[in-house]
């Protein structure tokens, strides 16, 4: 099984309440809160697809879509 590669951060803006848990716990500091206090992936290129944000999001608002690495 190849290493998972990030395809997309799918963030449900209607469900996100801007608690900031994902922003704080992301090991690569990929996420930030925008002006409307919703999580956005500002540095998606740094994402290692560990999914720590997805499994801890209290609002079930984050989904990390990955594709299997070709290598």
């Amino acid at each position: 099984m190849g290493k998972a590669k990030l395809k997309e951060h799918r963030i449900n803006r209607d469900w996100c309440k801007g608690c900031g848990i994902c922003v704080e716990l992301c090991p690569k500091k990929v996420l930030e809160l925008d002006a409307e206090e919703k999580a956005v992936a500002v540095r998606p290129e740094d994402c290692i697809a560990c999914k720590l944000c997805e499994i801890r999001c209290p609002d079930l608002a984050i989904e990390i879509i990955t594709e299997p690495d070709e290598k």
């Binding site: 309440k17 801007g18 608690c19 900031g20 848990i21 499994i55 801890r56 999001c57 209290p58 609002d59 079930l60």
Partner: peptide
Amino acid sequence: WCPGCGHGTVLN
């Protein structure tokens, strides 16, 4: 649940 409530993570 309030923003950042741990119960949401338990549901998850």
